[in-house]
Design a binder for these strands. Structure first.
Lengths: 211, 211
DNA sequence: TCATAGATTAACTGTTTAGTTTAACCAAAA
DNA sequence: TTTTGGTTAAACTAAACAGTTAATCTATGA
């Protein structure tokens, strides 16, 4: 078998994947280096050989996952579509994405909540600053037609994004009230139905909004 | 000074309050018994004198907080009001409640996500089972008028609840995109505005929903 | 007034955890 | 062939941590 540089080696990837799983499941404080090593099928010494410390390993994982999440959210709003088309596309693609990564929202949200400074080092990497204003400018006519002013955009966008993210983050809470939701098949089909429910809900709200 | 039974003593309350703060801030795995003792202004031994173990202390706190959250959510939907009035009242009171307990949603959601079995012992205590079906029966006429079938209720209720909860749970994520949101005053007034935004949004959506 | 029970403390114990060290092994590259 | 870098097992360290112990304090009721 070929041996290459440490960076991007096969083992490094195995470790990274294992670390991603464990951190997503348990969070930073609950994760154990030993468990990560076990899952990667390697020795704890080797783990520290590739990633000096738990912090470094965590930051590597966190950075990639946060980027992944933001990319999914922002990418769609870059496209050349009407605002409504973007929303429909977003709900469709983002819910598909979250069905494949159901623990991702809770992991990111919680780590940021528990340790807000965590994002400081990455804020430049995410350069969405452009996006924030751009979205409104691009669709100002369409949005004014719905009675949405520029100052309403945060309210609107948070509402849209919560449509897909919240049910995943709150899954266990929901399962307390609706026990069937513990079943993966049922929960996933609930989320697939939600694509249309959410789109209809948002469009109806936009269509007849009070000024 | 009078000495009374262990239950409900002053010290016990001090410990409980300190534990609540620390657990809400750091989560179970991140919390330290020493920090709880320090905040309560007592010795670590005394902490174990009142609550045998970290687990027992945590469960006591968790149970109270979960109940607090559920009570707020369900209480309003018991009242004798129209569905729309209930929603308006819910958003008003729940957002006020969360402004006073901003870390509560993330704490509960995360602990349940990381350790789903945590609710098992409390499920009976929460007896909302009644509520689930009752809400639709009570408002079936009104809701049918909006094109909401019984099977749509989970989608609708999750949407309503996410309106108030999500921004608090996702506050740090939001702050990455809207830096002003780091400021408490600005965030709180954003949430106060949200009462009306959310109510209007939901009512407009209900008024003209596709069947 | 003093015996007692509960409240509180300082110091200690035992365990878990991140991280290190060492010695040996192996495959490929030089 | 020698060197180099990846890999292992195992033992180890130091710090952090939950939990315990034994002694002290304090109010109070007999």
């Amino acid at each position: 078998m070929k041996k290459t540089r440490i960076t991007d080696s096969h083992t490094r990837q195995k470790i990274f994947r294992a670390a991603t799983e464990v951190f997503e499941l348990k969070g930073y404080a609950g994760a154990r280096m030993q468990e990560i090593a076990d899952r990667a099928g390697i020795n704890k010494a080797l783990l520290h050989y590739y990633f000096r410390s738990k912090d470094q390993l965590f930051m590597a994982v966190f950075q990639v996952l946060l980027k992944k999440m933001f990319e999914k959210i922002t990418a769609i709003f870059q496209a050349d579509l009407s605002f409504k088309e973007k929303i429909r596309l977003f709900l469709d693609q983002h819910i598909d994405f979250l069905i494949k990564n159901p623990k991702l929202p809770m992991f990111l949200l919680n780590e940021m909540s528990v340790n807000p400074s965590i994002t400081e080092s990455i804020k430049e990497t995410l350069h969405y600053g452009e996006l924030r204003d751009m979205i409104y400018e691009k669709h100002s006519k369409e949005l004014k037609g719905y009675g949405i002013r520029k100052s309403d955009m945060p309210q609107l966008m948070i509402t849209v994004v919560s449509m897909s993210i919240f049910p995943f983050a709150a899954r266990e809470m929901i399962a307390v009230m609706i026990p069937q939701m513990l079943d993966n098949r049922k929960f996933n089909s609930f989320m697939l139905e939600r694509k249309e429910f959410a789109a209809d809900f948002i469009f109806s709200a936009l269509k007849h909004r009070k000024k």
